[in-house]
Design a protein around this nucleic acid. Structure first.
Lengths: 203, 203
DNA sequence: ACCTTTTTAATACAGTTGTATTATTTTATT
DNA sequence: AATAAAATAATACAACTGTATTAAAAAGGT
């Protein structure tokens, strides 16, 4: 009873924070990160600056949270797919790998926002630390996927996994970047196809 | 005589513009692109705002020029190597490919600045157009390098070059990004090694 | 020496920024 | 109904921003 109420309260607060973070995304995409001022974000979220301050006491808090939300959304998406329910399968692994490419509008949006944060990370210690943490997580996840591919005999057992994870992660990252920057040339279909061709070379 | 004087005049003007652009780089790296205001750049270049305005009438002009300077520096570097003097050679090709990775401080610096501009390109039409133009140029250059590798029998003739150029370019771009963001994990040595391993798989 | 051009600088303007403080409204509790 | 807490809002402050205008200094030409 009391526990449920507390959880609902927290969820309401958290839902508003998430709504504000998504308004931040919208501003970043439309006007660039440098124009994601607290006023512009507040306007986008239909709040006043004072009101927004109730949820994020500093702009830095807001940006960090907005960045973390990208990873949270990815994790939720993967979780919702119920992958690996019956043990590892090739198709599930591919599905995880595909989450690293902007193959739909949602993912593309997130990656564009992420790119903006990457840029800011170079000069902002807090953003950088968070960025690095999330990249490390992705690296581990990809390494695990590669190990599973080898386990499933979908990749050769003699591969140097240290090299291959750098190669795969680099490929995914680079193609994503190109797909964002030159969407007419590097279409989702093309980069998805190249990913599959790449995986074929691992057999 | 008169021609030499005009050229010297232009070179002097151009040299000052380049100096200002490099001050812009310095500010971007230290404080982020969003803090590369005309005042901060002017201060970095030891000029006043009015003085800076003599060389770049708008901030946008300054940023575009600063972005173009990255490519100009790369081209100059490649030019200075006198590659392909005696026709194509494998080592020369590798040298060009290595220019796509942050293997030294200069290149790393340029790529960090480039990352900042990429981010800004998402919301700024002028920057985006210039970004896309430069990326297209790089794509073509890489495609040419791949074709030369095939010609030199350093890559199989049956490769699908459309796939391989996307793969190679993606790999180079992605590893560069990782080297910038996680320099302790993705060291220049590692990414250089992975590039070579990748090229081995093309044989 | 004087005049012109180039380079550098100072100042102003209107607008924006993150943060702080105070106020008001809404919701929840007693 | 009264009180307290939560949510929203308005206002202020000091500093910063790109651009415009005017001024001054330095360099070049006659």
């Amino acid at each position: 009873m009391c526990y449920d109420w507390v959880m609902e309260k927290i969820n309401k607060f958290e839902a508003q924070r998430e709504k504000i973070a998504q308004a931040t995304w919208a501003v970043i995409l439309r006007d660039g990160l440098e124009n994601a001022s607290v006023r512009n974000v507040a306007q986008e979220a239909n709040l006043s600056v004072g009101s927004l301050r109730h949820y994020f006491s500093t702009q830095s808090d807001l940006l960090i949270y907005s960045m973390e939300l990208i990873q949270k959304k990815t994790d939720e998406r993967i979780e919702a797919m119920r992958l690996f329910g019956n043990g590892p399968s090739t198709e599930d692994i591919l599905e995880v790998l595909r989450q690293f490419l902007p193959l739909d509008a949602e993912r593309k949006l997130e990656m564009e926002v992420w790119l903006s944060f990457s840029s800011k990370a170079l000069a902002d210690e807090a953003i950088r630390a968070k960025c690095q943490e999330l990249l490390e997580n992705s690296y581990q996840r990809l390494r695990t996927m590669l190990e599973l591919l080898i386990f499933l005999k979908e990749a050769r057992g003699d591969l140097d996994i240290d090299v291959e994870v750098v190669r795969l992660y680099g490929l995914l990252e680079g193609m994503s970047y190109h797909c964002i920057m030159l969407p007419d040339k590097f279409t989702p279909e093309i980069i998805n196809h190249v990913l599959h061709e790449h995986l074929q070379t691992l057999k």
